[in-house]
């Protein structure tokens, strides 16, 4: 399973590196969202600084939808999905691999967004490790949930409109917990921030487990 996951993740990342879709579309989109938030909230630095953690996570959520759609679009070519299915690779491995590839892209998005809120919104993070741990846990959860729903809506004609409707409410806990944890990291309130990790951790664990268990049956459907 782990070897299969590595293979699939390597394949997806290699495709991304060569096609540069993530680089030229997903990353600029994330920055664009930040700039648009700036326009929406006006130039006053205090409003932006308070809202920054929430805006950061909202931008990450939107990028997750894009990255997931892209991750499934890779498999939508002529017979690609059948090829993957017939190759004898463990479905759980496919799931973990695709989730890992999405996670790598999300890490890139978050590095850029993190720099973005520091530069554009003038945010000073007090407790770096808290923000980092929250981001890692959230990234795992987001990519797992995103890939699951991507597989669910793969091959449907309405997937572009359906996927956000399905994914965004599911990842709402990540938005809540991520924003609170980052607010705490910005203000240095470690104790209250750390308690939000208790939401992010289980979310990631649950969706990884559900994905490993249900990705097989899901592949039969598509």
């Amino acid at each position: 399973m782990w070897r299969d996951a590595l293979l699939v993740a390597g394949k997806d990342i290699r495709i991304e590196l060569r096609s540069r879709v993530a680089l030229w579309q997903v990353l600029p989109f994330a920055v664009l969202v930040l700039v648009l938030f700036g326009f929406a909230l006006g130039p006053g630095p205090s409003a932006l600084r308070t809202a920054a953690p929430g805006l950061y996570w909202l931008a990450v959520l939107f990028s997750t939808v894009l990255a997931t759609q892209r991750s499934m679009a890779i498999e939508s070519g002529e017979g690609t999905r059948d090829g993957l299915r017939l190759s004898g690779i463990d479905p759980a491995g496919v799931f973990l691999g695709k989730a890992a590839a999405v996670a790598v892209q999300l890490v890139a998005v978050q590095v850029l967004l993190g720099a973005g809120i520091v530069v554009l919104f003038d945010v000073h993070v007090e407790t770096w490790w808290l923000a980092l741990v929250a981001s890692v846990l959230a990234t795992v959860g987001l990519s797992a949930a995103g890939v699951l729903y991507g597989a669910l809506s793969a091959g449907l004609r309405v997937r572009e409109t359906l996927l956000p409707l399905l994914v965004l409410p599911i990842v709402a806990p990540v938005l809540i917990a991520g924003s609170r944890a980052w607010s705490a990291a910005v203000s240095g309130a470690v104790a209250s921030g750390a308690s939000w990790l208790k939401i992010l951790g289980p979310f990631a664990a649950v969706y990884l487990a559900v994905g490993v268990a249900l990705y097989g049956p899901l592949q039969e459907t598509a």
């Binding site: 699951l148 599911i170 806990p173 649950v206």
Partner: peptide, 12 residues
């Protein structure tokens, strides 16, 4: 599958 995904999300 979608119903189960959603249901798992409810307690979180």
């Amino acid at each position: 599958v979608a119903a189960l995904f959603a249901f798992v999300d409810v307690p979180i």
